[in-house]
Structures are given as C-alpha cells and as structure tokens.
Amino acid sequence: MLEIKCPYCGKRSQNEFSYGGDANLKRPELGKEVSDKVWDDFVYYRSNPKGKHSELWHHVSGCRQWFKVSRNTATHEIFKTSKLDEEL
C-alpha cells in the first residue's frame, strides 16, 4: 500500500487517490502554431524513466485537488509531494 502525502490533507492511503501520469508533459500553448511533431510528442511520447519520476496524482476521494509527486518507479518510494504551482 502506498502512503501518499497530499499537500492539502496530509498522509492518506493509496485508495483515496487516482493517477494522472507524467507531470513533465507540457501542453503546447493555445492559439500558437504547433507542428505535428510537437503535438505528437505531447500526446503520445513518454520518457518513461526507471527511477525518479515526476507525476500527477488526484486526491479524488478526498479534497479533489491535483498535485505533483516525485516517486521512484523501481522501488515505489515516494520522495516528495508538492502543489501544482510549487517546485517539486
């Protein structure tokens, strides 16, 4: 069982959260010209690292806030969590 520290509510069990994927993906800016490659990279391509991974989680059965988690994909160890607008 993962214990995840929601930056708003504190430590809660994994059951309360849902996953939102790689937090480093940047959606191309609205209203600007976007090349196919940039768009494809954003939609489909992932760095998928073994080790430290920044990712989004959603406290869906709690405060319903999205936040960032730094987690080890090889050991499942959670290093740090932060609010979306904070540095991880």
Binding site: M1, S13, D22, K50, R71, T73, H76
Partner: peptide, 13 residues
C-alpha cells in the same frame, strides 16, 4: 496497479 512502475511487484489495493 495504475502508476508507472518497473518494480516486478504490486500493491494490495
């Protein structure tokens, strides 16, 4: 399990 993982083991939930 629902999150990126290279660990060949999962969790109870």
């Amino acid at each position: 399990d629902g999150y990126n993982s290279y660990a060949q083991r999962g969790n109870l939930p």
